[in-house]
Amino acid sequence: MTANTPLRTARVPGRMPRVSRAPRPRRPERGSSPQEGERVRQLTRGQVEDRLGDLGDLYAEISGGSPWAWNQARGAFLRRLAADARQPGFSLLVAETTALTGYAYGFPACGGGPRWVGFDGYLSRSLLHRAASGRLFVISGIVVPSRVRREYQDRAWNLARRLQRRLLDDHDAALGVTLVSRRDIDTVQTLCSWGWRYPVGDAPRALLTGPFRVLVLPRGS
């Protein structure tokens, strides 16, 4: 959803070539729902610092690539995360079973607009009004496994939907907002499958000509 979020499909070492077969009817879901299997909780700033290694490892694992690319992606991500963590109201939610399975983070946009480098010129008057009233929340990262991106995206218990909805609820935000590279079509499509939409109305010129797209997420999506 920006460079912060590895939404491309992770590589699976040793995967055998896929053989074309006739499609099979989808079987009913079995077992407990993912909502029961994964516990979502917020980390304090101290806990975020203590678990930077785990957060960076999961990001790099989901990003995939060679060991060199793995280390590069991990280091760049941790620098961006550290910068976001300094924002007032920063919040990071983790999903866990016996291990870390995903997380999402962001911070409230407030006062004269969101304090996030890159948003200048991209927010319409209506979004700036939301920011001024404290009802706009910047979701700057969602890190989830590939199965969450390709399976049951419209279900309320989809992990990405649970994480982003919890961030908005915890901060009483009416809308979430994020920036996505205009070239990153896969990320745009994935976010839209989780309920994100293009803002309507008084879009600024930068929205049409700049390198990024603005997406918004209504609370409850």
Rank of each mutant, 00 (worst) to 15 (best):
residue 19 V to Q: 12
residue 183 R to V: 06
residue 14 G to N: 08
residue 191 L to T: 02
residue 46 G to R: 13
residue 209 T to Y: 04
residue 160 A to H: 05
residue 206 A to G: 12
residue 206 A to D: 14
residue 203 A to L: 14
residue 146 S to A: 12
residue 63 S to R: 14
residue 203 A to C: 07
residue 32 S to A: 15
residue 100 L to T: 03
residue 198 Y to S: 08
residue 71 N to R: 15
residue 33 S to T: 15
residue 33 S to N: 09
residue 39 R to L: 11
residue 159 L to P: 05
residue 56 G to Y: 10
residue 175 L to D: 03
residue 56 G to E: 09
residue 119 F to A: 03
residue 154 D to I: 00
residue 219 R to C: 05
residue 22 A to S: 10
residue 122 Y to T: 13
residue 179 L to I: 04
residue 198 Y to V: 05
residue 26 R to A: 08
residue 146 S to R: 08
residue 44 T to I: 02
residue 168 L to C: 06
residue 6 P to M: 08
residue 215 L to A: 00
residue 114 P to Y: 14
residue 25 P to Q: 12
residue 75 G to M: 12
residue 210 G to F: 03
residue 168 L to V: 07
residue 210 G to A: 04
residue 37 G to P: 00
residue 119 F to R: 01
residue 67 P to N: 13
residue 115 R to S: 12
residue 19 V to E: 10
residue 45 R to L: 14
residue 64 G to N: 06
residue 55 L to E: 02
residue 142 I to K: 01
residue 183 R to H: 09
residue 221 S to Q: 12
residue 94 V to N: 02
residue 44 T to C: 01
residue 152 Y to W: 12
residue 165 R to I: 00
residue 181 S to H: 14
residue 60 A to N: 03
residue 99 A to N: 05
residue 141 G to D: 07
residue 172 D to P: 00
residue 127 L to D: 06
residue 119 F to V: 01
residue 63 S to Y: 12
residue 137 F to A: 07
residue 31 G to Q: 09
residue 3 A to H: 13
residue 151 E to D: 14
residue 104 A to G: 12
residue 28 P to K: 13
residue 108 P to L: 04
residue 21 R to G: 04
residue 134 G to R: 04
residue 79 R to H: 10
residue 167 L to R: 12
residue 6 P to A: 08
residue 86 R to Y: 00
residue 122 Y to N: 13
residue 57 D to S: 12
residue 145 P to I: 04
residue 31 G to M: 06
residue 125 R to N: 09
residue 8 R to N: 10
residue 112 G to R: 15
residue 179 L to E: 05
residue 167 L to Q: 07
residue 188 V to N: 00
residue 45 R to T: 07
residue 115 R to Y: 01
residue 157 W to A: 09
residue 129 H to K: 14
residue 121 G to H: 14
residue 11 R to M: 05
residue 30 R to G: 11
residue 139 I to S: 08
residue 204 P to V: 13
residue 117 V to T: 11
residue 43 L to W: 15
residue 45 R to P: 10
residue 205 R to I: 11
residue 37 G to H: 10
residue 74 R to K: 15
residue 118 G to S: 04
residue 161 R to Y: 01
residue 13 P to H: 09
residue 8 R to T: 08
residue 84 D to T: 06
residue 134 G to T: 08
residue 213 R to D: 02
residue 70 W to Y: 15
residue 189 Q to V: 12
residue 41 R to V: 01
residue 196 W to L: 01
residue 218 P to H: 05
residue 11 R to D: 06
residue 16 M to G: 00
residue 185 I to M: 05
residue 53 G to T: 13
residue 1 M to W: 04
residue 139 I to K: 01
residue 143 V to L: 02
residue 108 P to T: 09
residue 130 R to C: 12
residue 149 R to A: 07
residue 66 S to R: 08
residue 39 R to M: 06
residue 55 L to Q: 04
residue 207 L to H: 15
residue 39 R to Q: 12
residue 22 A to D: 10
residue 163 L to G: 02
residue 200 V to C: 07
residue 39 R to Y: 02
residue 196 W to M: 02
residue 135 R to L: 05
residue 111 G to N: 11
residue 56 G to P: 02
residue 32 S to P: 05
residue 119 F to I: 00
residue 123 L to E: 10
residue 199 P to W: 06
residue 14 G to V: 03
